[in-house]
Amino acid sequence: MKVGLFAPCYIDQFYPQAAVATLELLERLGCDVAYPRGQTCCGQPMANAGCAAAAEAAHRHIAACFEEFDYVVGPSGSCVLHLREYVEGAPSARYYELCQFLVEVLQVERLDAAFPCRVGLHASCHGLRGLRLARASERQEPPFDYVACLLDMVDGVERVPLDRPDECCGFGGMFAVEEEAVSVRMGADRLADHLRQNVEVITGTDMSCLMHLEGLIRRRNLPLRVVHVAEILNGSGEARNA
């Protein structure tokens, strides 16, 4: 199975360890993974700012980068959702968020990883409601949660339930700066929930939400840290020891 690794721009530049973990994990699960070096940005920031036209070239470019692959997998629900909505076109989904790919395509049932920690799972909205990686709390249907399911395969992970299972963290791209006051307040509320449950590590599918939460954690010197879910599922040593 030929898999193209999609490393969203901010992961490529600021959080390479999440992309490394994604690559290693997919390889260990038997995928033939390649990283097209020419890829840049999916164009989501421009579209969310109301300037989708400015992203058209980016859409064409990224489509060309991944033309030859059966699947394109990336560690970011938000960017993958954007690719599905703006680039895909075809009805059969080819762009996958990592956890969705592990559950729906690879149908992973066990993982060889350990992460002995109290972990709070932040359900990023675009993965949750756009890609349906879990049942959103407002929907009346049988519960399921891909990411939680995968985390539970990792030795030692103590997944902690939150008071509000899927409240938005307030990142929202440009929203984080344009609506700075509300964004920060939303992030602080999200962190307070994790702190109430004595969470040690907040994880999630989207490093962008975690970047926003990490910014608050570091400014406020809170006893929390953020780790991308790919690193936990991969059993990356750095994630455990950081």
């Binding site: 490393a7 901010y10 992961i11 490529d12 530049q13 600021f14 959080y15 390479p16 360890q17 992309a19 490394v20 990283y35 070096r37 984080a176 700066v177 344009e178 700075e180 920060v184 992030g187 970047m211 926003h212 990490e214 910014g215 608050l216 570091r218 400014r219």
Partner: peptide, 18 residues
């Protein structure tokens, strides 16, 4: 820097993933 008013900017690594 509206981001940085109440939040730290991310720590940038030496090497990108690429």
């Amino acid at each position: 820097n509206a981001w940085g008013r109440q939040r730290e900017l991310p720590r940038a690594p030496d090497r990108s993933f690429g």
